[in-house]
């Protein structure tokens, strides 16, 4: 289990190669990479173009919150390794924001755990996004779809 909250970019290939390296029980690695896109989406419609996205977080709480989400994934699925890297600061369209990667003996567990982790990261980790758009600075609001995706995994 590993959590990194950082300003710097990350190397997806190197991170995936290192995940569970040498662990012969690993039969599947899945990953999710979130990127900054250049369109502000609200209620399903593309509205304004986005020139930059700035992520703010709550140092000290962020790491703990992500570790709790990661621990929940490990309690639900047989994972051999997991990694979450989440960036903060000013990012531009095309930049990577987040990497979620998990290693498991089985692909179903790997797919499901990865999906669960990104869904819960969206609504349970203290990050906030503000976009520089063609209509000025806009805080990204919570999306109902993200709340529903979070609830899907509730027990």
């Amino acid at each position: 289990m590993s959590v990194r909250v950082q300003r710097e970019d990350f190397d997806v290939g190197a991170e995936l190669a290192a995940l569970g390296a040498g662990n012969r029980r690993v039969g599947a690695i899945t990953s999710f990479v979130g990127l900054v896109r250049d369109l502000h989406v609200r209620e399903g419609y593309h509205r304004e173009s986005v020139s930059a996205l700035t992520l703010e977080h709550y140092p000290g709480m962020t790491e703990t919150a992500i570790e709790e989400i990661e621990a929940e994934a490990n309690a639900r699925w047989p994972l051999e390794a997991s990694l979450i890297i989440h960036r903060y600061g000013r990012l531009e369209p095309g930049d990577r924001i987040v990497l979620v990667a998990v290693a498991s003996p089985h692909r179903e567990a790997a797919f499901e755990a990865c999906h669960f982790l990104i869904d819960w990261l969206k609504t349970k980790a203290p990050f906030w996004k503000v976009e520089d758009t063609s209509k000025g600075e806009q805080w990204v609001g919570a999306h109902e779809a993200d709340d529903l995706a979070t609830k899907k995994w509730e027990r």
């Binding site: 709550y58 919150a65 987040v98 969206k122 906030w128 609001g141 919570a142």
Partner: peptide, 24 residues
């Protein structure tokens, strides 16, 4: 630690207020 509006604040050293999280 995430709290509700009903959570007591006695003994708290830090209380934070924020909009809904939008990570990922």
């Amino acid at each position: 630690k995430v709290a509700t509006f009903a959570t007591p604040i006695s003994g708290a050293s830090e209380v934070a207020f924020f909009p809904p999280f939008t990570g990922g």
